[in-house]
Design a protein around this nucleic acid. Structure first.
Lengths: 250, 250
DNA sequence: ACTAGTTCCCGTAGGGTATACGGAATCATG
DNA sequence: CATGATTCCGTATACCCTACGGGAACTAGT
């Protein structure tokens, strides 16, 4: 009764494996080389540009040769993701807030350097060292508060989800700017007709009130950033407060 | 000096347009028919199944005929999204909490019925009636609290982002279950080798402590749900508290 | 009844994508 | 030099989107 054993785990954790004795035809490439090449292409031209054919061409090798190193394209994507997660290099001491700040900064930087991350699903992520390092770091950050064990995971997941959502949103915005040639503000301007020709004032009283109050003066990307910081503040404050006993509204 | 005028706005707001006088060859289909057919296919088999060729075949029409009704596939996707957003039918009175609850329930139901929504980016969404109805509803919900105008938008965006993130995550999980044939738990089980062969206890003390404390007993989907509810509670509480004056930590 | 104007319908053609299969090439070892 | 192991890769299949342009089908006007 043999279990199905996915070939991806040994690949993700390949750095923990000692090299086998050399036998057979020696390889021209390596998994690392394939992965870093794919990352380089995706950084510059987007995820879909990093096709098997393109990566192979970049390495002066036939397309099918890549399948010696990587089982298929989804697995290559997993390896790319865990590689940049690992390179984020989450380490450091400090208070709860300091650690969260470090986590957020590094995460935003990672998504800015590798916006194609936003083109890949977060569900069922690669279970490699990079992914686990993130889990550990955020959990450890929350643990500094002294919360009960059962509350650590929800709190850490909430923080990671919130930060990652915002970083992904920013990355998607950057990708769209590159593929369409338009910034978010230019995109909105191009659709100014919406307000002139289609918007129904009576059906949207609250939006209209805010508009008339002049509170829509910031660009769309800035509004998203505002909401991110506002929400992060509420989350952190709520998590901290839950340590000090009763947190009901009086 | 003519501005570039996107053809998509009149399509999104087509219900606000009075029918033109009939002239020329009468159409066999309609925009609504194309959009609802595409939605039906995507509901049953995923977004990529709703290709131009497939939708056309379903309507017994040649592929290129669709381009009479819809400028291109991305625009068709926009129309699909706004259609189901509009069908969510967000209306209702009530307290802040009641409205947020209604918004969350309807949103989760929408993503359950149309999981392909999670395959489309949230950045630069279709600016149609469905999208604007969501904005208005959430803003109005927050407005019941009497917050200052400038705080309405960040608060509403935070709520919508949080709820939508969770609904999308659940939808992605459902999509993966369908395409892979494995539930999330089965997927984790298949990777049990991770803990046996690869996981480094010393590098992950916090995770290990939680594990030993037995706080990892819930499945991955349930953990995500827990984190969602936990975080939503913190956000709502924080937003409510900010009405009652100073909310600093003592 | 005829024509002009308008709109819809759609065949063809081109450039992408991932990967199953099987055989040739290249190495260390005995 | 033979053997076994491993890498390398040519071919073929089945999708995808959409630019272009010409034929078909209708109304309105005369």
């Amino acid at each position: 009764m043999e279990e199905f054993s996915p070939r991806i785990l040994p690949l993700l954790w390949r750095r923990s494996i000692k090299a086998r004795k050399a036998v057979g035809r020696p390889p021209r490439l390596s998994v690392d080389l394939v992965v870093t090449t794919a990352i380089r292409i995706a950084d510059a031209e987007g995820l879909e540009a990093a096709s098997m054919a393109r990566v192979a061409a970049e390495l002066s090798v036939a397309t099918m040769s890549l399948y010696t190193y990587v089982p298929s394209r989804p697995e290559l994507a997993d390896l790319m993701v865990d590689e940049v997660f690992w390179a984020r290099d989450l380490r450091g001491e400090g208070t709860f807030r300091e650690r969260v700040r470090l986590y957020a900064e590094r995460t935003f930087a990672m998504y800015r350097a590798h916006p194609w991350l936003a083109e890949l699903s977060r569900a069922r992520p690669p279970l490699g060292p990079g992914m686990l390092a993130e889990q550990e770091f955020v959990l450890a950050a929350v643990a500094t508060l002294g919360l009960p064990l059962r509350q650590l995971n929800p709190a850490a997941t909430a923080i990671a989800t919130w930060v990652t959502s915002a970083a992904r949103h920013e990355a998607e915005s950057a990708l769209l700017r590159r593929t369409t040639g338009l910034s978010t503000d230019e995109w909105w301007l191009q659709r100014g007709e919406l307000w002139e020709s289609w918007f129904d004032v009576e059906a949207h009283p609250t939006m209209t009130a805010i508009w008339n109050g002049g509170a829509f003066d910031r660009g769309a990307d800035e509004q998203a950033q505002d909401a991110y910081e506002y929400g992060l503040g509420l989350l952190l404050q709520g998590i901290e407060k839950s340590v000090e006993g009763d947190d009901r509204v009086p």
